[in-house]
Amino acid sequence: MKRSILTFIGVALLALPLAACEKSDTDVVVDFMQSWMKDKGILDADGKPTLQAGIVATGFGTTGDDRVDAAVQAGTMLQSLHKADKLVDEAGDAMMGRPRDSDLALNKMNAAIDMRPDDWSYLNRRGVVHMENGNKKAAQADFAAAITTCNGSQACIDRVNKDREAVGWDVFGPSL
């Protein structure tokens, strides 16, 4: 109860106009959010919080449309994706370095694939690392696994093949 009261007092503060003379980009976004919250009935016309503010404060709720919900709730997933992509970039750096460190590259790729096992672009890249190491069997297994993640979707298979050409020739040198 105490927490809800504090939340409501806090939300009331949001209704205060930003006092800073020069608005930062965050201020601009906060202004937008206030307009949006008024439009959605989270704040009333005077900028006071409505009951709906309590629900919004909990971070729960749904629009009833899966794709809209997914787009709104994707923040955490995107952060995890950034981390995995960073590992892949580091693997690329290890492969492009002089001397080339393919063990480090492989470790980074394994860690990225652990985070996103169904990401065919990672499987493609690890396949290329295996190829560079002369491990054709492992490379072929990764390339096959990349196609398997498409579940038969031709659009996906086309993208996998296109990506494989790109990583083979552009990222790690002409290996395929």
Binding site: G10, L13, V30, W36, I42, V72
Partner: peptide, 25 residues
């Protein structure tokens, strides 16, 4: 357009930002 936008606002983060701005003033 604002009506056509769906979203989610991190109210605690906004509050902290507002309070920090007030403290600075």
């Amino acid at each position: 357009f604002i009506s056509a936008v769906d979203g989610d606002v991190n109210i605690p983060a906004m509050l902290k930002y507002q309070l920090d701005a007030l403290t600075k003033l």
